[in-house]
């Protein structure tokens, strides 16, 4: 069940990425900061953080690759998580719930989830900077209205929360493994 879900997740991420490779146009969600600009009638248009959908017609190979990269990273993360989960499930199915390797595997799972989330976020930012900047897209930068994309990597809070939860579970399982070891040889 768990393995099936991670496999589906990996296939989903990969399919989304492959779609960006094969599609005629790239459709990318972008966050940008609109500046405050005076309108013709003298009123002030309020700017601020905005999320829009950007369609890149006839994208270059580099642009396709940088849009595909986050999906590839998430796919690889899902595959590694699936392998680790399969090992955990196998030891549980074998009747050894507190196998001594289980806490390490759960903690590693947390590291993989966090690392995958961070790398995907970093690659997304890198893609935004290099391939989706107004200059790269060949459009005149409306500097008065749109701030240039910055290099700030959005911290993946969901991945961080999942990783923290997994580390807590690993600590609990580590304690359980010690107690299990204490019970070996008890009659």
């Amino acid at each position: 069940m768990v393995v099936t879900l991670t496999t589906l997740a990996a296939v989903g991420f990969l399919a989304a990425g492959v779609a960006s490779i094969a599609a005629d146009n790239l459709v990318v969600a972008v966050s940008w900061t609109a500046a405050q600009v005076p309108a013709a009638d003298g009123a002030l248009l309020v700017g601020g953080p905005t999320t829009s959908t950007l369609t890149v017609a006839a994208p270059t190979g580099v642009q396709r690759l940088l849009v595909f990269a986050p999906a590839a990273v998430l796919c690889a993360t899902a595959v590694v998580c699936g392998v680790l989960l399969r090992r955990i499930v196998r030891s549980v199915d074998a009747g050894d719930t507190f196998h001594r390797d289980t806490p390490r595997r759960v903690a590693t799972l947390g590291v993989v989830v966090l690392a995958g989330g961070l790398v995907a976020a970093a690659v997304t930012t890198a893609g935004r900077l290099t391939a989706l900047s107004p200059a790269a897209l060949g459009m005149a930068t409306p500097a008065s209205a749109v701030a240039a994309p910055n290099g700030v990597v959005d911290v993946p809070l969901t991945a961080l929360a999942v990783a923290a939860t997994l580390w807590v579970i690993a600590a609990v399982l580590r304690r359980g493994s010690r107690m299990h070891a204490d019970l070996e040889g008890l009659v």
Partner: peptide, 22 residues
């Protein structure tokens, strides 16, 4: 009322702990 397996462990000196109930 103790399993043969547990008593075998005790008999063959492979036990590391024994319950007071046993």
């Amino acid at each position: 009322g103790v399993t043969v397996a547990n008593l075998s462990v005790l008999k063959n000196n492979r036990a590391r702990a024994i319950r007071f109930s046993t």
